[in-house]
């Protein structure tokens, strides 16, 4: 369907997109404001960015969040891919219903509920086994839970649409099922794994509510520090920090998108060549 859509529809689309972006663009603009008063433009300045470099609390929190995000995203990528394989490839197994429910529910479950229940589990575990103490590890465990759900859904749809014939050909040629999967299907679903990892990483970096429940004394993630500052009102150094985060994520997502599309086109060309 390529005919021009009615202009009224396009107007709504344009307004919707504008509403999504204007607040962020304004915040980016204010991050270069020399004046500490938010409503007043005091000229262009990179003052707030230089301020950030000397804020040890923010840098420490950012480093903690990056480490948590890296570990959680990697673990979630493995668990989520396994869950996706199980759900797509094994039609019947005990616990299939439970697994389906447990990978879909975290996507919509209010974070506050997940956070409270996970804290109660962790407290009870500590009470019973003397482990784990709240901090880095408990935040990672909580993040892996919801990240696994996102990875599973991402990989699931890709895996379901992946062509099985190559894998079956590999098995006909004597590969074991695992080997055949790794050689043929894994490269096809690799972009979904990558985007699942990236999504997990950004969701983990962004999580405030669940982290607040499961973290312990001394383990304040970046969103926790930002939230405690933002509750007191708009502050210019947070504008600068937010701009850096948005720029990093934006550029990262764009590069990932381009790379994935290129990888896809390359695969298509390879398949066409192979078919000739």
């Amino acid at each position: 369907m390529n005919e021009r859509p009615p202009s009224m529809l396009m107007t709504v689309l344009a307004i919707g997109v504008a509403l999504l972006y204007i607040p962020m663009l304004v915040m980016i603009g204010y991050s270069f404001n020399a004046s500490p008063l938010v409503g007043i433009w005091g000229g262009f300045s990179t003052h707030w960015y230089r301020e950030l470099v000397h804020n040890d609390q923010l840098i420490g929190a950012a480093w903690l969040s990056l480490r948590i995000g890296f570990v959680a995203a990697t673990a979630a990528m493995v668990l989520g891919t396994l869950a996706a394989i199980a759900l797509v490839r094994f039609k019947k197994f005990r616990g299939r219903f439970a697994l389906t429910a447990m990978v879909n529910a975290p996507l919509v479950m209010p974070e506050i509920i997940t956070g409270i229940t996970q804290l109660l589990l962790l407290i009870s575990m500590l009470h019973l086994f003397g482990w784990p103490h709240r901090g880095f590890l408990t935040i990672v465990l909580a993040h892996v839970t919801f990240c696994t759900a996102y990875v599973t859904v991402t990989v699931q749809s890709r895996l379901a649409s992946a062509d099985r014939s190559l894998e079956e050909a590999a098995m006909d040629l004597g590969s074991g099922p695992v080997r055949a999967f790794i050689d043929t299907t894994l490269p096809i679903i690799a972009p979904a794994l990558a985007s699942g990892w990236l999504l997990s990483f950004t969701l983990s970096l962004d999580d405030l509510v669940i982290s607040s429940f499961v973290s312990g004394p001394g383990a304040s993630t970046l969103p926790m520090v930002i939230f405690s500052k933002v509750k007191l009102g708009v502050s210019p150094d947070i504008n600068a920090l937010a701009t850096l985060i948005i720029a990093t994520v934006g550029v990262g997502v764009l590069i990932a998108g381009v790379l994935m599309r290129r990888a896809d086109q390359q695969r298509l060309r390879d398949l066409q060549l192979a078919a000739q």
């Binding site: 607040p23 962020m24 304004v26 915040m27 950004t202 962004d206 937010a242 948005i246 934006g250 997502v253």
Partner: peptide, 21 residues
């Protein structure tokens, strides 16, 4: 991509950005 991009950027920071408006 334009619709998804905000989804990738921080939820907390987007709410904060709205405060500036």
């Amino acid at each position: 991509l334009v619709i998804i991009l905000p989804f990738w950027t921080s939820f907390l920071l987007r709410v904060y950005a709205l405060e500036g408006i």
